[in-house]
Nucleic acid binder design. Structure first.
Length: 119
DNA sequence: ATACTGACCCCCG
DNA sequence: ACGGGGGCCAGTA
């Protein structure tokens, strides 16, 4: 089945909303998860158009080399870095990002509390 | 219509 | 590290 052209951005946003706290992914990977392989630029463009007050985790998207896409020292860089740190990621001064340690248990608790905790 | 520009990606010297 | 080539494609001039 083929997405209509104007549904691609919403597919990107849906894939973004489905990312996990403390994780990071590349633009290309985001596009692929949205069913749009090879469309990294589209993913980047969609993110660039997000309203500043967006609740979506745009900051979890980094370059394929695991670095923040913005220039180090820029306001956008600082913002993204701060949000990533807040989720437990490590971010070097140059922008290299290491995802937060995520375990099945912590993810389960993040999503469902202790209701279905795993031994 | 052509030309340049991006929060990009991959491969090869 | 650094550069070149190709893919991708909507927006802007």
């Amino acid at each position: 089945m083929q997405m209509t052209a104007d549904s691609s951005p919403s597919a990107i946003l849906a894939a973004l909303a489905a990312t996990s706290p403390g994780s990071v992914l590349g633009y290309g990977e985001l596009a692929a998860r949205a069913g749009l392989p090879g469309r990294a630029r589209l993913a980047a463009r969609v993110l660039s158009q997000l309203p500043s007050g967006s609740q979506l985790p745009w900051y979890r998207v980094v370059r394929a080399n695991h670095c923040i896409a913005f220039a180090p020292g820029s306001a956008d860089f600082a913002r993204q870095r701060q949000l990533l740190l807040a989720e437990g990621c490590e971010v070097s001064d140059s922008g290299r990002v290491k995802p937060a340690r995520t375990t099945v248990r912590s993810l389960d608790q993040e999503l469902w509390g202790d209701m279905f905790s795993v031994p």
